[in-house]
Computed example of a mutant assay.
Amino acid sequence: MRTARTTLTAATALVAALTLAGCATGQQNQTEAPPAASSPAAEAEFNDADVMFAQMMIPHHEQAIEMSDSLLEKDGVDEQVRDLAQQIKDAQQPEIDQMKDWLDAWGEDELGDMGGMDHDMGGMGDGMMSDEDMAQLEDASGAEASRLFLEQMILHHEGAIQMAEYQVQEGENPDAVALAERIVEDQTEEIATMQDLLATI
């Protein structure tokens, strides 16, 4: 009798476990992870270039968002420039979140040594704006703000593209390399758009 009861209990537990597993699988299929989610490869394979890419690109993206926020708060700004600033902000915040997740998974600090980047990345500039540059954008208004934003963001994007190209060449993590490739493509297109807008302002 005890054996039958034990067998019944075990079978009930097995059915419950399978039911829960089925529910979990169903839920996972219904809510698939967005493209920005880290894959197992993001945690398994990385090198120093991957770490440096994330550490440097996070503050770089954060400054681009700060520049965009500054422009979006102004009146009298060209509507196409305003739309571009919002586009940049919407694209780069998820990328920041993704890179922070990678650094956490890799057991690395979020902020790296920005001062050492020129040496580590072949002497290239990073396109970061100085405090004076940011103050100029903050103080500008109307068409002048639109023009200054475009000029500064072109330089900023050019720095990001150089950083991303270095990552494509030297990085090991497939997800980080894929992000770098996307940054090169997206920001190259945005530079072309900004150059066209500059010609009309």
Rank of each mutant, 00 (worst) to 15 (best):
Q169T: 15
A16T: 11
A21Q: 08
A44Q: 12
Q63V: 13
D118G: 09
D133S: 10
A44S: 07
S70Q: 14
L14A: 12
N29D: 14
Q136I: 12
Q136V: 11
A54I: 08
T188M: 10
M129I: 01
E32T: 13
A64P: 06
A192D: 13
E62H: 09
A176E: 05
D90P: 13
M117G: 02
A164T: 05
D133F: 11
I161F: 03
R82Q: 04
Q93W: 04
M194F: 06
E165F: 00
A135E: 15
L179C: 05
G125W: 13
Q27Y: 14
E132C: 09
S39I: 11
I191N: 04
T193Q: 12
M57P: 13
M117T: 13
L198G: 10
L150E: 06
L20P: 05
D78V: 04
A91D: 09
L150C: 12
E62T: 13
G76L: 11
G127V: 10
D139G: 00
D131R: 02
N47I: 10
M128T: 06
R2N: 09
L8G: 10
R5H: 10
A140S: 14
E170L: 04
Q28W: 14
E181K: 06
L72R: 02
E79S: 15
T12V: 15
Q80D: 15
E138H: 11
N47T: 04
Q167S: 07
M99H: 01
M153C: 14
D48W: 11
V77N: 03
Q80G: 11
N47R: 03
T31V: 13
Q169W: 11
A192M: 15
Q86T: 07
V177N: 05
W106V: 01
G171T: 07
R2E: 15
L179E: 04
E66M: 14
D69W: 13
A178P: 01
G159D: 00
D118S: 12
A33N: 08
F149R: 05
A145E: 05
E62P: 15
I183Q: 02
I65T: 13
E185K: 06
E132V: 10
S39W: 00
L72K: 00
M163S: 03
E43N: 03
Q93L: 07
R182E: 13
D186G: 05
L20T: 14
Q98Y: 03
K89I: 04
Q80V: 09
A140P: 10
H60T: 13
P35I: 15
D133A: 08
I161R: 00
H156M: 02
A178D: 09
A143M: 10
A199L: 12
D90E: 07
D104Y: 06
Q55A: 02
I88R: 01
Q167T: 04
L179D: 00
G171S: 06
L197V: 04
Q98S: 05
D139K: 14
Q63E: 08
G125I: 08
Q28V: 15
A44C: 13
A24D: 15
Q86M: 05
W106Q: 02
Q98L: 13
Q152L: 15
H157W: 02
A37K: 06
M129R: 01
R182G: 12
A41N: 01
E66K: 02
